[in-house]
Structure formats: structure tokens, C-alpha cells
Nucleic acid binder design. Structure first.
Lengths: 200, 200, 200, 200
DNA sequence: TATGAATGAGATTTCATTCAT
DNA sequence: AATGAATGAAATCTCATTCAT
């Protein structure tokens, strides 16, 4: 029931925002009465804190698992697979995506703080992880250049992410293709610098 | 008073969402009583529809004026200036930006429709405008290539836009710099292809 | 404008009752703004008192004029013409009729009192008037018998009146016919008693 | 509580009309808070629809029971007892009577429709019932004559009913007496026609 | 576990009324 | 003669929450 309530809470949050997601709507969704929710959660705020934590934890876990599935492939492919991973994670759970977007503009303090922590943690993990992957393929790469390419990757990832809400169908697929093309040209530049001597 | 009410509505929408932006909060903000709002707008929904229309119209107008200020400059600069324009428009009106983000997940039908129309109109204008700028500098450019570079520009713009909510200060400035670097490399490729006279 | 306001007030009273007849609805009906009503009437209560007075006065005047048009005809015909008069007065002004019905259940003190006075005055006039008509045709009629026939006439008139709201078209017309048949048999009885010697 | 609410709703409707019968007044009457009414009825309209249905159903049931108590008596007495029944039903529940009168001018669609259905049903039942009673006592009576006497009975009943609101005390009692006198003379006529054996 | 009944607080909206213009 | 702007009061209704069962 905890799981079902969190899921219903997120769905309603995505649709109507915090104040629009009422205990009644959530209760209806899981087939109980509003009063019953209080058996599982102290109040509305606690329910939503639990829901948001789950949302962000799941996002983190998904990104980790995508990385682990691809960590032995060539770096470029790791990067492109992560783009695909972001896309499939979010398009496959539109309600979670909407909730995530709404979170970013949320004014509730406890939420904002947790979101900020999550961002920090996610970013650190991403940078650490991608740095080691890059270093493996380009041993002489400078820290600055690593940072640059990782941040550009994130920038492109963000562009694709926001596109999820702006484009549908073919239009969105095209965005993904174009994002990966950019990524590839970034790696082409890297290759020219660090691996040109490899091709005799 | 209409203007003040719309402004207050947007601010509160950005902060608390549709259901959290109460008529009382909005009235307090402009120094009248909640009942008085109904002299200017039939109900809450109509107030917000007016507010959202203004928000989107302003966004469009801002983009147009940025373009017109730069239309005689070299293409590459037009593109980079538009990135700067997007950034300054949104960072200078954070409340409007938050409102815009929330709009994207809004379930209110009339809003969603108007948003969709706006997107269509904005996109068409952007493509038309940038195409003619590109054609002037690269007369032999193919339609496909024009489309590609414009869409990649949009993708990068979206990445920068979403970054506004994720990064602050130096971190965000770095994102803009990196975005422009990507844009520049895209134009470098174009130049290689079409500005053959550069290579004597 | 006074006339138009009273008319609009009555119409809305008939439709929605006192509390449902809002100053806005009344103002809309006559094409002015609610604030303007206060130029003509001190407040809602005064407007309605004026309206109800007019309603009852008109009713009284109508009955008087019906009587005067028929006062030289045979008594029986006077009685039947008055039934027709009641019918045509009320069916021709359904909104006034509804207002009149609602008045009867109205809890507003000033109204109830005025209504009661009107009833008294109307009843007295009716009895006086019909008595002298009856006396002219049946000189030996007792006061008791006069009273009886007048009250039965009123009873039948009330039955027809209430039927206005219960029946439509043919069904209502039939009620009128049946009412007049009853009246006629009442007069047949009178004739047997007082004018049998007239038929040699 | 449902019963108490309906009763309070009818009382306040009779007193103040639909718009004057506020949820607060009704709640006060039954000793709860206005918000609590919404636990039992979705909104004001549904409460009143339930109340009106009960009002009309009770009226119908009362008339049926009056008939059943008297069905074995002579026809004439059935008719006069029903007049007495109408009177005692309505004078004994003045609030219900006022509510009933107000209903007749109600503009609320769902109410009007239900009222119309009730009228139809009540009328059909009345005609059917009285026809069989008449046929028992006057086997040779024509359908036309039966219809006539039933409709005249209804007409007189309506006159008495409307008199409830116009006369008090002795004056009203006199109306009932006069009504029954009329009924009796109607039956006298019937007897003359069909009970020829009375005149040896 | 779950709910029926209830409520205080507050949200949206309506309404009669005022007042300066 | 009429209205735009405003408001206090109140009406309808919603909502998070409580508590006894």
C-alpha cells in the first residue's frame, strides 16, 4: 500500500502540483478512503517527502544501472548509451518526469533541500564515473578537457530532457539523433587531439 | 490593475502552482481584497489564462526583438546572441521562467492548447528566421543541413534553458560558455564545407 | 425606468424567489448596471416593496375593470365573466402570477402585511360588489345565502386559479368549462328558490 | 441524519425559498456544521432534490392511505373524506405545504421534471381510483360523466387547497363546508339520473 | 487496516451596497 | 442618470485532519 500510495501521490503531483494533489484524489486512485492514508503516513507532507525521495532515488539507481551495463564499452558509446538511458527512463515514466520537473520549481523547503542534495550527489557521481571512463581511453587527457566534455555532455543531456516535454514522436526522435551527432563530433575532436598518432 | 493582477498571478503560480496560488495571495500582493479581483476577471481560470497568454506573448516578442537587434551581424553571431538572449530573458525574470516551466506540465486544457499553439508559432518563426539568415551567409547550403543546424541550435538552447534551474552563478555561466563553444564547432564544420575560398 | 425595474424585479422574483432575484439579474434585464438601481430605489427591499404593491394594485384594478365592464349584465353572467377575467388576467401575465403565488409564501414581514391588507380590501370589495349585483336580481335573497354563493364562487375561482399552474392547454380550458358549469348549477338552485314564479 | 437534513431543508425552503435556504441555516437546524452536510449530500442541489422527492412521495402516500381507509364507504363519502384528507394533510404540515407551493414556481429543471412526473402519476392514480369507486355505485354511468365529476372534484379540491393559504380559522373551515356542499349537489344530480328507483 | 462522521480553516465566488466621478 | 471600482459579509464548497469504532 505504501508503494501504491507513493505512486498515486506522484501521479497526482505531476498532474496538479502539490496543492492540487489532494488526499481524496490519491485515496481514490488506490481504492481507499482519505482517512485511511493516515494509517500509513503521518500527514500529507510526509507522504510527499517519501514520494519525492523515492522518485529521486529511482532516478539515481537507473542512471547507475545504465552505466554499469555499459561500463566496459568504448567511452563514446558509454556517453551515447547514457543519453538513450535518460530518454528511456523519462519517456517510460512520463508521470515521474512531470513530477521531477515540478519538483524543480517547488517552493517547499524540505523538498528543495532534498532535491539540491540529490543533484549534488548525482553530479558528483556522474563526473567521477565519466572521468574514470575517459581516463581509461584517453590517458593523457587534461582535467580541464575532461570537465569540459562531461559538462557539455550534461548540457546536451539537459537539452534532450527538456525536449521530452516539447516534442513528440518523430520530432523527438530527431532530437535524440542530433544530440548524439553532437556528442560524436565532440569525441572526434578528442580523437584528433589524443589518438591521431594511433592511426598510422 | 489588470497588469498588476497578471503579474501577481504569475509570481504566485511560479511559487506555488495553480492550486497554491490563491486569490487571497494574489489580492494581497496588489493591495486589494479577493472579491475585487472578480471585477477585472470572471474567475480564477480566466485570470490565469490571461496571465499565461501574456507570459508566452512576451517570450515571443523578446525573441523577435533579440533577433532584430542582431539580424545584420554574421550568422554565427546571430545564433550566439540568441543564446545570450534566451539566458538574459529567463534569468532576468525567474518568476516568469518558473511559471513557464510549470506551464509545460499543466493539465488545464485551455492552457495546454494555447501553449501548444505558441510552441508551434514560435518554432515556425524561429526556423523561418534562422533559415534566411543562414541562406544569406551560405548560399549553397542544403535544406537538410539548415534544418539540422537549426534543430541542434534549439537542442543546445534547451539544454542551457533547463540549466538555469539546475546551476547557479559560475556553474551556470560555464554552461553558457560551453554551449557557445559547441555552436562554434558546428559553424566551423559548415565553414569547412561551404566557405572553400578560406582554404587557399 | 422605475416601471422597467419593477417589471424586471417581478419577473426575477417569480423565477428565483426573493433571495434568488439578484440586483445584477434585474439590472441586466433592463440594460443598466447594478449600481444604477440605487439611483431609483434606496435598496433591494424598497424596490421589491414597490414591485409587490404594483402587482397587487394591478390585480385589484383588473378585477374592478372586469366587473365594471359587465355590471349591467345578468348576475350569472357577471359571475362567469369574472372567472374568465381571473383566468385571462393570470394566464396573460404568467410572471405576475408566479410572483403572486410566491408572495403568498413569503416570509418578509412588510410584504406579508401588505399582502394581508390587500386580501382584506379585495375580499371586502368583492363581497360588497357581488352582493349588490345579487340583490338586484334576487331581491328576497337572504344575507346568508348571498354570502354562501359568493364564497362558493371564490372557492371555485381559487380552484381555477391554482389550476393555472397545474394544467396546460386543453386540460386547463376544460377546468374553466367545468368551473362555469358548477357556477351555473348554483344559480339554477337560486332560480328554483327565488324566481320559480317568474316562469308562468 | 439524512431524514433530519431533508426535514430542515424543506422547512427552510418553505420559509425562505431555494436561495434563501442556506446550508448554514439548515446545518444549524440539525445541530451540525455546514461542511458536514457535504458528507451526506454531494451539494445543495442534491440535498434539495432528495427533499422534494420525499415531499412529493409523502403526499402521494398520504392520499393513497386516505383512500384505502375509506374505500368501502359510499362513493359520496369517499369524495368528501378525500377533501378532508387533503385539508388535514396540508394544514398539519404547513411547512410542507409552503414547500409544495413554492415547488410549483421552481425554475430548477430537475425539480420541475420530477414535479411534473409526480403530477401525472398522482392524477392517473386519482382518476383510476375514483372511476372504479364511481362505477361500483353507478354501474350505468358514462365515461364522460365520470370524468366530469372527477375533474370537478379536483377543481374543488384545488380551491380548498389554495384557500389554506388565504383563510385562517373559521373562514377556512367555512370554505371546507362550502366545498362539500358543492360536492353533494353534484352527487344529487348523479342520483337523479342514475338512481331512478328512488323516485317511486 | 480501514472507515464513517465530523470539523476548522480556508478557497472561490456572489451579493448588496457605497462612493467618487 | 449612470457607472467603474471597491468591499464586507456571507454562501457554497473543499480540504487536511481527527477520532471513535
Amino acid at each position: 500500500m505504501h508503494k501504491k500510495l507513493i505512486s498515486a501521490a506522484l501521479k497526482n503531483y505531476a498532474l496538479y502540483g502539490y496543492h492540487g494533489a489532494t488526499m481524496k484524489k490519491i485515496a481514490d486512485e488506490v481504492g481507499i478512503k482519505p482517512a485511511s492514508i493516515y494509517f500509513f503516513y503521518k500527514n500529507k507532507e510526509e507522504l510527499f517527502i517519501a514520494a519525492f525521495q523515492q522518485l529521486l532515488d529511482r532516478h539515481f539507481q537507473k542512471m547507475e544501472s545504465i552505466f554499469h551495463e555499459n561500463q566496459d564499452k568504448p567511452v563514446k558509446q558509454i556517453f551515447t548509451e547514457m543519453i538513450h538511458g535518460i530518454v528511456s527512463h523519462h519517456t517510460g515514466d512520463m508521470q515521474g518526469t512531470d513530477a521531477y520537473i515540478s519538483l524543480v520549481t517547488s517552493p517547499i523547503d524540505e523538498i528543495s533541500q532534498y532535491l539540491h542534495q540529490h543533484m549534488q550527489r548525482y553530479n558528483n557521481w556522474l563526473v567521477d564515473t565519466l572521468q574514470s571512463s575517459l581516463r581509461k581511453s584517453y590517458p593523457q587527457i587534461t582535467d580541464a578537457e575532461m570537465n569540459r566534455i562531461i559538462k557539455q555532455f550534461v548540457l546536451i543531456g539537459n537539452g534532450v530532457f527538456w525536449g521530452i516535454k516539447l516534442y513528440k514522436g518523430k520530432d523527438f526522435e530527431e532530437q535524440v539523433v542530433l544530440a548524439i551527432q553532437i556528442l560524436e563530433s565532440l569525441f572526434d575532436e578528442l580523437n584528433e587531439k589524443y589518438v591521431s598518432t594511433n592511426k598510422p
